[in-house]
């Protein structure tokens, strides 16, 4: 048993866990902010929205669909020049961020629009009848009422982001995916591969656990 564990470079494992966590959390935060903004624009520019605008709505809808349609592994290569421009390198955890964000922000924008559309139209009408401005409707009605759906979408996206970091790892971004592939699979060190996988699972379960807990807390329906 101890022989198996001796095959594992624990220092490298620790670094890999940190890298994966770093990539997941930063890209999640940025993607949520961007996705939320795009999602609101998508929602309010709909035909019966607060600021109907067909042109903006159609363009945004198209861009979001486009980026969601490109497979992540291909997206990484496509945006390499952009990555180089933004972070000055094509390697390392930070270099993976643009690709992770660009692939997940449109996803969150879509989820956000769906969540906002689920808010009872009657409550929006009621708040209009109270004299609420559009900004007040967004901040006082839409967000609080859509909160559980918005949060559970973050959970879903967080988990798929962990998966994406592993893919990014295979092409030099570091993290647990990189470790599992380079040291585990390529060098046939199965202990490293399984241990790395184990830590990926732990991270996923933690995200799911936190997400479920928060949703349960805020959902008063």
């Amino acid at each position: 048993m101890s022989e198996i564990f001796n095959q594992i470079d624990w220092e490298a494992m620790k670094v890999a866990i940190e890298e994966t966590t770093y990539m997941s959390i930063i890209s999640l935060l940025v993607a949520v902010v961007i996705g939320l903004i795009l999602g609101i624009i998508l929602y309010i520019t709909q035909d019966d929205g607060l600021y109907p605008n067909k042109v903006i709505n159609k363009i945004l809808d198209f861009i979001i669909n486009l980026f969601r349609a490109i497979p992540f592994i291909i997206l990484i290569f496509i945006i390499l020049p952009l990555t180089n421009l933004l972070v000055g390198t094509m390697l390392g955890a930070t270099a993976a961020l643009p690709a992770l964000i660009i692939s997940s922000a449109p996803f969150y924008a879509r989820m956000c629009m769906i969540a906002l559309n689920e808010v009872d139209k009657g409550t929006i009408e009621a708040s209009k009848a109270m004299g609420a401005s559009n900004i007040q409707i967004i901040t006082k009605i839409l967000f609080p009422e859509a909160k559980p759906a918005l949060i559970s979408s973050i959970t879903v996206m967080g988990i798929s982001l962990v998966g994406y970091t592993a893919m990014a790892g295979c092409i030099g971004a570091g993290g647990l995916g990189n470790l599992a592939y380079m040291y585990g699979f390529a060098r046939r060190n199965m202990a490293v591969m399984y241990t790395a996988t184990f830590f990926v699972l732990v991270i996923v379960f933690i995200i799911q656990g936190i997400g479920d807990y928060v949703v349960k807390k805020v959902d008063k329906r």
Partner: peptide, 11 residues
Amino acid sequence: MIFQHFNLLWS
């Protein structure tokens, strides 16, 4: 204004 389905905020 009051409504048939009340239109309260559940949150």
